[in-house]
Computed example of a mutant assay.
Amino acid sequence: MSSEEQRIAYADQGWCLAPRTLGQDALAKVRSSVRAIAATERPEVVYEEGTRTVRALHGCHRYDEVCAELVRHPVLLDLAEALIGGPVYLYQFKVNIKSPRQGRKWPWHQDYAFWAHEDGMPEPDAVNIALHLDEVHESNGPLTVLTGSHTLGLVTTGGTARGRDWQDHVSARLTHTIPEDEIPALTAKFPPRSLLGPAGTVAAFHPSIVHSSTDNTSADRRAVLLLTYNSVTNTPTRLTRPAFLVDPDSTPVRRLANALT
């Protein structure tokens, strides 16, 4: 698929799969770093509520060299720039981890609801790049998108918006959710698609696309690394959340030379 075909698919569907994957050497380095970070005690490590089971890691690029290099990897950065249509900076870095039979769901929501209401991002002129660190299959809680729902703009949400602790933006009690009674009508109009694939798979999805994921009911871990690249012309107007959750540095990302494949 050419860059132009990617842009067309993304504009139409609100998501697309990248023609390139992250190579095994690079993937192994990232997995090793993620494993080490998940074992540390630091504010950026978030747990499933009431447990010591890691749910997510945030802002790893700010303190881990491997993660910092990944932000600049051509497989990811080229895709982001092609879909945004110009220079980008790294807005968010996170790893969502669903441990076997313990990883909990992410309710139906739109990412842009958080970025607009919490951070004052002017437009949804950003893109999420998802990198599978594990094989993602139907039973380990895949990310499911409603194809074409990004065209709706912001849907009325069930959250209480600003003023809540940032932890409520990353837990199973997610702020800015879409009420469950609205989901049947949305899924009837916008076909659900689970983003499946082996480790190394790369996909992109729009900030306004409606998406969710289920509990991990399998014996397999499901870790997905998510890089949000924002247009350098679309910086937020208020940054009140921690820097590891929303990076304040809007310096354009430069391509990594001699990247591992």
Rank of each mutant, 00 (worst) to 15 (best):
H176Q: 13
L186S: 07
T187H: 09
A9E: 14
H137V: 10
K94W: 00
T201S: 15
P207A: 08
E5T: 06
L245Q: 06
S194Q: 15
T177K: 05
K98A: 06
R35H: 13
M1P: 12
V127W: 02
S208E: 14
H109G: 11
S32W: 03
A113G: 13
T151N: 12
L226Y: 03
A199K: 08
W108Y: 15
R241H: 10
R241Y: 08
A219S: 10
S212R: 08
M121P: 01
P192A: 11
A257P: 00
G14H: 11
R20D: 14
K105N: 12
L90T: 13
A185D: 15
R193S: 06
G197I: 08
D78L: 00
C60Y: 00
P122D: 12
R164Q: 14
T51Y: 07
D247T: 09
V202E: 12
T177M: 06
A18F: 00
A80Q: 01
R222L: 04
S218Q: 04
L154C: 09
A18M: 02
P122M: 11
A257M: 05
W106Y: 05
P198F: 05
T251W: 05
V127K: 00
L174R: 03
L146H: 11
S208Q: 14
G163D: 04
H137R: 13
T261D: 14
E65C: 02
T157G: 15
V54M: 03
H137T: 11
L76V: 10
A113T: 11
R254Q: 12
N96E: 05
S250W: 01
P242I: 10
Y229W: 04
D215L: 03
S231I: 03
L131K: 06
Q6C: 05
R31G: 02
D220I: 00
V145F: 07
C16M: 07
S212V: 05
L196F: 08
I37M: 09
L27P: 03
R31F: 02
G200F: 07
N128E: 07
A36T: 11
K94R: 13
S139Q: 12
S149I: 13
T228L: 04
R62Q: 15
A56G: 02
V202C: 12
F205K: 00
L226A: 00
A172C: 06
G85H: 00
T147S: 15
E65M: 03
H58N: 09
Q92I: 12
W166Y: 15
T237I: 04
K94V: 02
T187A: 14
E135G: 15
Q167F: 08
L195S: 08
A172F: 09
M1A: 13
S208P: 01
T187F: 07
Y91T: 04
A28P: 02
L245Y: 10
R72Y: 09
V46H: 01
H73R: 04
D12A: 12
S99Q: 14
E135Y: 01
